[in-house]
Design a protein around this nucleic acid. Structure first.
Lengths: 204, 204
DNA sequence: CGTCTCCTTGAGTTAACTCAACGTACGTGG
DNA sequence: CCACGTACGTTGAGTTAACTCAAGGAGACG
């Protein structure tokens, strides 16, 4: 993924949509299909996006030649798994306010890592319906919770743009600790602002 | 994992436990730690279990020498990710009855694959509290839903043993399609019984 | 015989849902 | 330029699924 915003989604009971993850530039949206051929979810773009396609054959050939590249791609898929692991907890044991705050925290860090969230502000192409479907709540309820976040002066959120006003409060509301994102340096809840420099991962 | 029953869990808001997956014999419970060192969850055994430990150093050395083994282990970690992917949907967009039914369906198939659920019956060491924590509901509610499943004559569930009485009905209630488990032959919802023979995976 | 763990039940409460309507902005075509 | 449709956000009101608290049973075990 080179530019834009994607999400993957599954359908429950035929019509109830669950957004299962967001993808930002730098992510590989369907790395799992490399070895798990049967696909039971969809990927949709929010607005226009730029994506690159790599054939499985070419990728496999490349990986067969390079154990270190294999490690890097494998690790990438483990990262995706860690995010789902956290989402299970988010959806299972947090209330609506915490769920939305948590998703916002995750997106902030991931966009910052991609260099797309300078000064705690980033463009947010999803609608409130999308947020609701990501958090497993109704869109009406999502709307009310977002208004609550605004009234708490924790975020500004107008016309497809989000600005975090109080990172610490947002992380507290969302019960968020970025450890599952395996960021090396940041310790995202240690200081007021999340990291703005994007550390070069040392695992390569 | 050689024998028994494990689960992994995370804590939300300090005290609310979410069980994030079950592990049955044949699974590798913490394969992700091979390349994601920071661990933010726990693994617990339900009753006694037999597990084997393999040092990361030895495993890495082995994988460096064998691309096909690497693929197999990578694929194993992708399977875990696919299960979490499904759980996100389960927790986000299904009601309590469907969540429990879905988890039961998944366990049935996975145990059957491990040869531990002959005749749609298997030992189930978790308490109703554990089921509740896996499904993101309260234990009181879990109890009432389980009673409902019994009254519907879909499952028998007494003293740590589960027997599926009506697989088709259970799968329907749980909105379950086993496709995310990537089973080759079964098409688990095409016939009354889930597959009893465990096909040799062809991806190796 | 007491204690512990787990299951069960009742009753009141609450978070979140559904339905329905209305506002606003934006684009499009007459 | 205005009428219209559409998409999205917002609000109100009634409903429901699930929760919490609290108590009571059943079995296992020393």
């Amino acid at each position: 993924m080179l530019d834009g915003f994607l999400y993957s989604h599954k359908l429950a009971a035929g019509s109830r949509r669950q957004i299962t993850s967001f993808f930002v530039p730098g992510d590989i949206a369907d790395l799992n299909t490399l070895y798990l051929p049967s696909v039971d979810y969809g990927i949709t773009s929010l607005g226009s996006a730029v994506v690159a396609f790599v054939s499985h054959a070419a990728l496999k050939e490349m990986l067969d030649r390079s154990p270190s590249l294999t490690r890097a791609f494998w690790r990438e898929s483990l990262m995706q798994a860690a995010i789902w692991h956290e989402w299970v907890t988010n959806l299972g044991r947090r209330d609506a306010l915490a769920r939305i705050a948590h998703v916002l925290c995750e997106l902030t860090l991931r966009l910052q890592l991609a260099g797309l969230a300078r000064e705690q502000s980033f463009s947010m192409p999803c609608t409130q319906v999308d947020i609701a479907d990501a958090c497993g709540i109704s869109s009406v309820h999502a709307n009310r919770i977002i208004q609550e976040l605004r009234q708490l002066h924790v975020v500004e959120w107008d016309s497809r743009r989000v600005r975090i006003l109080d990172w610490l409060a947002l992380a507290r509301l969302g019960d968020f600790s970025g450890s599952y994102l395996q960021l090396k340096q940041p310790a995202p809840d240690r200081k007021q602002a999340p990291p703005s420099g994007q550390g070069v991962p040392e695992w390569i």
